[in-house]
Design a binder for these strands. Structure first.
Lengths: 215, 215
DNA sequence: CTTGACACTGAACGCACGTTCATGCTAAAC
DNA sequence: GTTTAGCATGAACGTGCGTTCAGTGTCAAG
């Protein structure tokens, strides 16, 4: 693959990140603004280069119609990534969500971005949701392990759901139990730690829909 | 959630699907064209309705900047989907990939579409990849179970990779073993079935990068 | 010294695209 | 009967946005 210049790689990353956080592609003027260019033509030059080198595709003459054709040059902190460490799309990963909800959280809570692999699709963002990196073994009996990513959706829990709850300023994964007529409570899914938590004044941040484990 | 009319639901589905296959959102005239409206204003009406009912969001005045806020009305074949069966984006799921590779496969091989949950993101389509629904317990020792979705990326396997391979016309998941100097072979990850497969003339269709299990 | 990449300014041009105004039809709600 | 939602046509209007033309400057290769 042809090498990108510093600037080109910055532009590419911006495009990717913009779509990753907003859900639609930037316009040329959006890019111009971000880099404080005084002319849109500065952007055009870089886009032409990125296109010629095969990193992006576009529908010419039509607004906000990018395609990322090649893996996005990773911001190489790790130097020796094997030529094929690719995945597909970013979603914000929180190690912890202290006070509130992730949309109110400054990006300090974000410990990285999970990339999920898909063939052809763009994601819709139907629902407020996010990924959470699991620490510890509290859900081991549900087969969720340290290092897995749990995909959380913000909605009201129902009996039997696995939820992300805020306990003592830390977000933890617990099973939500609510038998009819009784007050709900939370329960760790680990035979070694049979803790129970009253549901009072601890906020449930969302319900786990799925988890994803890298191989 | 407010109910959508037939037409509104069609529009919503089109928007979702358009983004799902193209990677960017449709313009109002794109929608107009699809439904053979003679006026763009027909679209506007439906968009206003969808917006008012909370299904979509947009940046007004800016092209192709949709957001799907709520679950997309599922094309209800199953009638009684619980009100909240949401995830986020389609990627093709193959139950089996007979002869070749998924891009050469007619859509008959596609048994559904996996939806993956992401906060805000669109996916890049950096790499040929797809999801495969796991049948059977052949990878149980790697903790991959019947019903899980494995995300496959098309690339050359290396020693220790879990690969999707074509054996007897069926795609199966196996561990790829290649010790230096020796010919490579495949191995099931289930103590009960310690089968070995020679790598000769059976095609490896891709390497498993991750798996996803719905909760 | 020239050539050619790379990076950028500045000013237009013109279509794509979102938006609005005006109009008309049907069916359900009050 | 009058109103309101839904669905649609038809004709503009205005601007977001991609694109082009022309020109400036640096720096390394030849």
């Amino acid at each position: 693959m042809k090498h990108l210049t510093e600037r080109q790689s910055e532009i590419l990353q911006f495009i990717d990140h913009y779509e990753g956080t907003r859900g639609y592609w930037p316009s040329i003027r959006d890019i111009q603004l971000r880099f404080h260019f005084k002319s849109t033509n500065a952007v055009m030059g870089h886009l032409r280069a990125l296109e010629k080198k095969g990193y992006i595709g576009r529908i010419h003459g039509q607004a906000r119609t990018f395609r990322l054709l090649h893996r996005v040059a990773p911001s190489n902190d790790e130097k020796d990534m094997p030529e094929d460490a690719i995945e597909l799309k970013e979603l914000p990963v929180y190690g912890n969500i202290a006070a509130g909800y992730p949309d109110q959280v400054e990006s300090g809570g974000e410990i990285g971005r999970l990339q999920v692999d898909v063939q052809t699709a763009g994601f819709s963002r139907s629902q407020r949701s996010f990924a959470l990196k699991v620490r510890g073994e509290s859900m081991i009996d549900a087969d969720i392990r340290d290092g897995d990513f749990v995909i959380i959706e913000q909605r009201e829990p129902r009996d039997g759901d696995i939820v992300a709850a805020l306990i003592d300023g830390e977000t933890t994964l617990k099973r939500f139990i609510q038998k009819s007529g009784e007050p709900p409570y939370l329960k760790a899914e680990n035979a070694a730690f049979p803790e129970l938590y009253p549901i009072n004044d601890l906020s449930v941040q969302g319900v786990a829909k799925a988890f994803l484990r890298s191989l």
